[in-house]
Amino acid sequence: MIEVKHLSKRIGDVQALDDLSFKALNGQITGLLGPNGAGKTTCLRTLFGLLQPDDGVAEIDGIDVRKDPIAAKQQLGLFPDPFGLYERLTPREYISYFAELSGLSKAQAKDATERAIQMLKLDDIADRRCKGFSQGQRMKTALAQAIVHQPTNVILDEPTRGLDVMSTRLLRSNLQQLKEQGHCVLFSSHVMQEVAALCDQVIVMAKGKVVAVGSPEKLCEMAGETSLEEAFIKLIGSDEGIAA
C-alpha cells in the first residue's frame, strides 16, 4: 500500500506538489493521471526519497520514506522513465544485479531472474547485451527489473510511452497479473486509453493537486460525461497536455 499525506514541494518557482494526498491499495491498479507538468513524476520521485518534500509524509506499507528510506524502498519496485538500462550488461545480468541490490541472495536472485525472464518472455534476448535493444525489448527488461524481487508495491512512470501495440498489450497483461497476485500497482500516465482500460482507481492530478479520485466510471459520472476523456478535460478545466 502506498499512501501520501499532504505532500508539498516547491522546485524553483513552481509549486510542483501542493498538499497532495491519496492512497493506492494492494490488489488494485491505481493510475495517476494528469497533464504534462502536473507533478506526477515529482510525486513518484518523492516516494523513492529522491526528492525531499517540503511538507507532508509519504508512506510505503506504513513505513515513512523519510525516516527509514531503506526499509521503505525494499517494498518498492520501480519502472523508471527513462528506463536507465546498462547497455554493457545483458538483461539477465541487469535483472539479477538489481534483484541482489533489493536484498535477495545470489541464489535467490538467480531463480527470481529466471522467473522474470520466463514471465516476460525475454528468453531470446536474455543473454545479449542491452545495447541496440528496441523500445519493446527495453521495456520488458525494465519491467523485469521492477518486479524481479516481488515487491508489494510496483511503481511505473509513464510505462507505455513509445511502445507499439504488442508491447503495450504485454505490459497491460503483466500489470493485470500483478494485480491478481495482490500487488499494489501505481502508474503515472497522461494517456487516457491506458488508464481507462487498466485502472481500478484513477487519481486525477493538475498543478500538483488531486482534482478527483474514483474509478473511470465514477469519474465520468462525476463530470456528467460519457467518455473518460471528456470527463478528464472537464475535471482539470483545460485540454492542455493530454494525449487521447
Binding site: F48, P69, I70, A71, L76, L78, P80, G84, S102, G103
Partner: peptide, 8 residues
C-alpha cells in the same frame, strides 16, 4: 536515479 531508488 534507478540505482538510488534501491534500498542502498
Amino acid at each position: 536515479t534507478l540505482l538510488l531508488s534501491h534500498p542502498l
